[in-house]
Nucleic acid binder design. Structure first.
Lengths: 148, 148
DNA sequence: TAATTTATGTTGTTAGTAACAACTATAATC
DNA sequence: GATTATAGTTGTTACTAACAACATAAATTA
């Protein structure tokens, strides 16, 4: 089915372009706020998934624990996260956000959302919803394949 | 308009998720083929935009010329690109692909397209086309903002 | 024509991203 | 009590990417 392949190619190219532009924009914006992209992602994950252990945070972010450890370390130095020891397990630490960390994430997030909103202000809600559905479908399908 | 903001937020999240999964998948796949992601992107750009000077390649990729220089250098060592001196301008070099470079890009590209095709095989053409339109619109709008 | 300015690429340096392996310390199992 | 497994950190390596400084060559201008 050549039509399907053509659509797949067009979609692939389009997603690639979107990724590049998005990343570029986000990186610039995020880095102007005292944190790197990975650090911001860790803040986001902690906001959304609550206090987590390091390994759990790494799993959520699809990163190695060693990488995550260093990202968390820089957030610690900037006082955006806290390490709480688990009295029941001396090895484990609970990572949670400081008020400053939470505030920083919300500031960055809000501005990026506003930016996105201004990009789609002329697009019909129907098209957006259709896109949303497909993007979520693509993500889900692609993620399912990561395990195999 | 809260509805628009909600849509913007949902879309932003969805795109972010898609970016992460896409990148993860592409990186794994590309790196199993003797080139890095950036190197593959340079191959792609040379396939699509023909022979280019280094600065022009950097512009196409939205990268600094120094970064591009090093990426090209590694492709040179692997004999996927050629540097041709411009007799009219002793400073300039023309970058073009070797047959091996072109073949490698097509191999990687084909497989990634097939992967994408299998992801969308159950999605209606209408939804895909709508999505394509919006993604292209988003990309265009976002890119227009990069200059300012 | 000679001097300055601009353009093309490369190299030095720095910072961020990210994995794998090796390691320490603690907990769980046998 | 000895072994095995788990949690996190550190050493090492490679990639991504920018800015600044540099050498060289071309273009401008005085």
């Amino acid at each position: 089915m050549p039509a399907n392949l053509e659509r797949a190619e067009a979609l692939y190219e389009a997603v690639n372009q979107l990724i590049r532009v998005h990343q570029f924009r986000d990186r610039d914006y995020i880095c102007s706020h005292d944190v790197s992209v990975a650090q911001c992602y860790a803040l986001e994950t902690l906001v959304k998934r609550g206090p987590l252990r390091l390994q759990a945070l790494a799993d959520e972010m699809y990163l190695d624990k060693s990488t995550t450890s260093r990202v968390v370390d820089s957030l610690l130095r900037k006082e955006y996260v806290l390490k709480l020891l688990d009295p029941a397990d001396q090895r484990a630490i609970q990572l949670s956000l400081t008020p400053a960390g939470e505030a920083l994430y919300h500031t960055i997030h809000q501005d990026l959302i506003l930016e996105e909103a201004s990009l789609i202000k002329d697009v019909s809600p129907e098209v957006i919803d259709g896109t949303l559905t497909l993007i979520q479908q693509l993500t889900k399908a692609a993620r399912a394949r990561l395990g195999s």
